[in-house]
Computed example of a mutant assay.
Amino acid sequence: MKKILIIASIIIGIVGLSVVGYGFYLFKTVKDTASEMHEPIEREKTRLVDFDSREPLSFLLTGVDSSGDEIKGRSDTIIVMTVNPNEKSVKMLSIPRDTRTEIIGRGTQDKINHAYAFGGVSMTMDTVENFLGIPIDHYISVNMEGFKDIVDAVGGVKVENTFSFNYEGFNFPQGELFLNGEKALAYSRMRYDDPRGDFGRNDRQRQVIHGIIQEGAQISSITRLDDMLRAIGNSVKTDLDFDAMNKIQSKYREARHSVEEIQITGSGTRINGIYYLIVPDEEIARVSNELKEHLEIN
Score class of each variant (00 low, 15 high):
3 K>M: 06
5 L>K: 09
8 A>S: 05
9 S>F: 15
11 I>K: 06
15 V>E: 03
16 G>T: 12
16 G>C: 13
16 G>L: 12
18 S>D: 00
19 V>G: 07
19 V>P: 01
20 V>A: 09
22 Y>R: 00
25 Y>A: 08
30 V>Q: 12
45 K>M: 02
45 K>E: 03
56 P>G: 07
57 L>C: 08
58 S>I: 07
60 L>D: 12
61 L>P: 08
67 S>E: 15
67 S>T: 14
72 K>Q: 08
72 K>G: 07
75 S>D: 10
76 D>R: 07
81 M>R: 06
83 V>S: 11
85 P>H: 11
86 N>E: 15
92 M>E: 15
100 R>M: 11
103 I>F: 10
108 T>A: 00
108 T>L: 01
113 N>P: 03
120 G>H: 01
121 V>P: 04
124 T>R: 06
127 T>E: 04
131 F>D: 02
135 P>M: 03
135 P>G: 04
137 D>M: 09
139 Y>M: 01
142 V>N: 11
154 V>Q: 04
154 V>N: 06
157 V>D: 04
157 V>A: 12
159 V>C: 14
160 E>K: 12
160 E>T: 12
162 T>F: 07
163 F>Y: 14
167 Y>I: 08
172 F>M: 13
173 P>A: 02
174 Q>K: 15
178 F>M: 02
186 A>C: 10
193 D>L: 13
193 D>K: 10
201 R>Y: 06
202 N>M: 11
203 D>N: 04
205 Q>P: 02
208 V>Q: 01
210 H>P: 02
214 Q>G: 03
215 E>Y: 01
219 I>W: 00
220 S>P: 04
225 L>Q: 15
226 D>F: 05
233 G>V: 01
234 N>T: 10
235 S>C: 03
242 F>C: 01
251 K>V: 05
252 Y>F: 10
260 E>W: 07
265 T>D: 11
266 G>R: 08
267 S>C: 05
272 N>W: 05
273 G>N: 01
273 G>Q: 00
275 Y>V: 00
275 Y>K: 04
278 I>T: 08
285 A>W: 13
287 V>N: 12
287 V>L: 14
289 N>R: 09
290 E>W: 06
292 K>F: 09
293 E>A: 05
293 E>K: 05
294 H>I: 05
295 L>A: 06
298 N>E: 12
298 N>G: 11
